[in-house]
Design a protein around this nucleic acid. Sequence first.
DNA 1: CGCAGACTTGACCGCGCTCAATGCGAGTGG
DNA 2: CCACTCGCATTGAGCGCGGTCAAGTCTGCG
Lengths: 249, 249
Amino acid sequence: MAQAIPFRQVSPLKASCQQCSLSNLCLPLAIGENDLARLEDIIQQGRIFNRGEHIFDQSTPYRSCFAVKSGSIKTSIITESGEEQVTGFFMPGELVGLDSIGGEHYACTAKALERTSVCEFPIDRLEELTGKLPGLQHHMYHLMSQEIQNSHQLAMLLSKNTAEERIAALLLSLSSRFQRRRMSPTNFSLPMARNDIANFLGLAVETVSRVFTRFQNQGIIKARGREVELLDIEALQLVSREFSRQCNN
Amino acid sequence: MAQAIPFRQVSPLKASCQQCSLSNLCLPLAIGENDLARLEDIIQQGRIFNRGEHIFDQSTPYRSCFAVKSGSIKTSIITESGEEQVTGFFMPGELVGLDSIGGEHYACTAKALERTSVCEFPIDRLEELTGKLPGLQHHMYHLMSQEIQNSHQLAMLLSKNTAEERIAALLLSLSSRFQRRRMSPTNFSLPMARNDIANFLGLAVETVSRVFTRFQNQGIIKARGREVELLDIEALQLVSREFSRQCNN
DNA sequence: CGCAGACTTGACCGCGCTCAATGCGAGTGG
DNA sequence: CCACTCGCATTGAGCGCGGTCAAGTCTGCG
């Protein structure tokens, strides 16, 4: 049964956004059904990356932005001195690479945190298409401005909040993003290591660990390794008070 | 001579980007001369704000983004608990309001730090125009992605760097932005109060003050109130090592 | 001249970083 | 099957940067 797959040859690499469970989160949500084919035309779909593989690398020529289909991605900047700064985590339905659009090179490195599949949008064709579809252009502006806002929220979190508040905010952010995908907002497994959390939130790994156990002792969460259960979401919201909106909404 | 100004009546409010000294920094740089008129058509020019006046307010309906012509602007977010977080400073030639494009409401409040004049770009007409001029659209993407990158740089500064490093980075950022406008990169006056600097960099006002005097004692800068002279730029770059690129380039 | 707001300086202390050791689970090979 | 290792996570002890609180000084403006 490995040989005969006749119908696939009709459109071997063409995406079918309509059948994708993420079409209500991803770019298609900005497009009418009649124009959807034009978007599908430019998508290079189905690339799969294993844990640790790079989707793209900082300072290499900018070619495409990517939508996460499954799995998860972290983006980070490597400074001249070799330090890493994690700039974001991306879950299914979210777009990676917006921070480099319009530039010559990628501004960050994107790495798969687990086995991850993506849809690729070549930038020249995407720009061409957004010029023709005002709704899509508007949506791109919207996504990019949201990324700016998220980043401002993060800066705020980093500059004004304690370790507990930062971690509570991150947990709530992940929770709402799982919920948006119709998954449990209270039981999930963290795609990233403690190290990445610490780096992202501007903390030491030890501090992250300590806060996790403190939350656990208070009965707010239950954590075993990367498996997390949020027992008292309201308590978390209380801890991260003004950040109920989150660094990633 | 106050009365007879016949030629102005031909285009009373029309902007003349060509004669603007900032045309090489602002949006016109993305447009060929023949298309420039189309941009000038949509600009509402010449609005002037006094120190402390708001250009726009957080959560009000999004109408326009603004280019600074002269003066300077600070943007900030007001949290639910009433705290302010300064998200950026904007100098002549820079665009304000990109963090809200594509959204329904302004994501922040923009306030004039001194007497400031701006050019206004109504968003619906700007989006329409970027749909027709690929070069302009590309430039908008570029500006927005740069804003994301700047914000990531800021987050990095906040999460990994000491008070001295943050302030050195800010001074260098301001320096290079003055230089870009052909003004002295070593002698300038800060448009913002210590309070705003502190808020922006996630520090206490007292800390900002202390670092300024420490730098002064080391002979790196000379500061009297808002008047600043950078005596040893290399020393500043050394202090803020990996941030020679800056939180605002 | 006097007041208010902005800025500076000093004393003190707590959060979170550092360093170091230990615990733990998964994968590997004898 | 156990011993070993390697990466990751946890826990503890000590301390320094920068926040807080409180005065004091400077500056511009009516």
